Simulated assay, not measured.
Amino acid sequence: MTTAATSTVTGSAAPSRPRAVTAGLWTLQVLLALMYIAGSGLPKLVGEAYAVQIFDELLGGTPMRLVVGLLEVAGGIGLLVPRLAGLAAACLAALMVGATVAQLFFLDLGYWYTPVIFGVLLAVVAWVRRAEITALVSRH
Rank of each mutant, 00 (worst) to 15 (best):
M1T: 10
M1N: 05
M1F: 11
M1R: 11
A5Y: 11
T8G: 14
G11S: 13
A13H: 07
A13T: 13
A14I: 00
A14S: 14
P15K: 05
P15R: 11
P15T: 06
R17M: 14
P18Y: 06
R19F: 09
R19K: 13
A20E: 08
A20Q: 09
A20I: 10
T22P: 00
T22F: 10
L25A: 06
W26E: 02
T27R: 00
Q29M: 06
V30T: 09
L31M: 11
L31A: 13
A33D: 03
Y36P: 00
I37Y: 06
I37V: 15
A38Q: 03
A38W: 04
A38D: 00
S40L: 09
L42D: 05
K44A: 02
V46I: 15
V46W: 10
V46D: 09
E48C: 02
A49T: 13
Y50P: 00
Y50S: 12
V52A: 07
F55W: 11
L58C: 09
L59G: 15
L59M: 14
L59D: 11
L59H: 09
G60A: 09
G60I: 08
G61F: 03
T62D: 14
V67K: 03
V67N: 01
G69S: 09
G69K: 07
L71F: 12
L71T: 15
L71E: 07
E72R: 07
E72K: 09
V73L: 06
V73M: 07
V73K: 09
G75H: 08
G75P: 10
I77H: 02
G78S: 08
G78R: 02
V81C: 05
P82N: 08
P82D: 05
P82G: 05
R83P: 02
L84W: 14
G86P: 04
A89S: 06
A89R: 01
C91H: 00
C91I: 15
A93K: 01
M96E: 01
M96A: 02
M96W: 00
V97F: 08
G98F: 03
G98M: 05
A99W: 06
A99L: 03
A99H: 02
Q103S: 07
Q103N: 12
L104S: 09
F105N: 12
F106E: 14
D108C: 05
G110S: 09
G110N: 08
G110M: 12
Y111L: 10
Y111W: 08
W112Q: 14
W112I: 02
Y113N: 13
Y113A: 15
P115S: 04
V116F: 07
I117N: 07
G119Q: 08
G119H: 07
G119V: 09
V120H: 11
L122F: 03
L122N: 01
L122V: 03
A123G: 11
A123V: 01
V124Q: 04
V125Q: 00
V125G: 01
V125W: 00
A126P: 02
V128L: 15
R130M: 04
I133W: 05
T134D: 11
A135W: 03
V137P: 11
S138M: 04
S138D: 14
R139S: 15
R139Q: 12
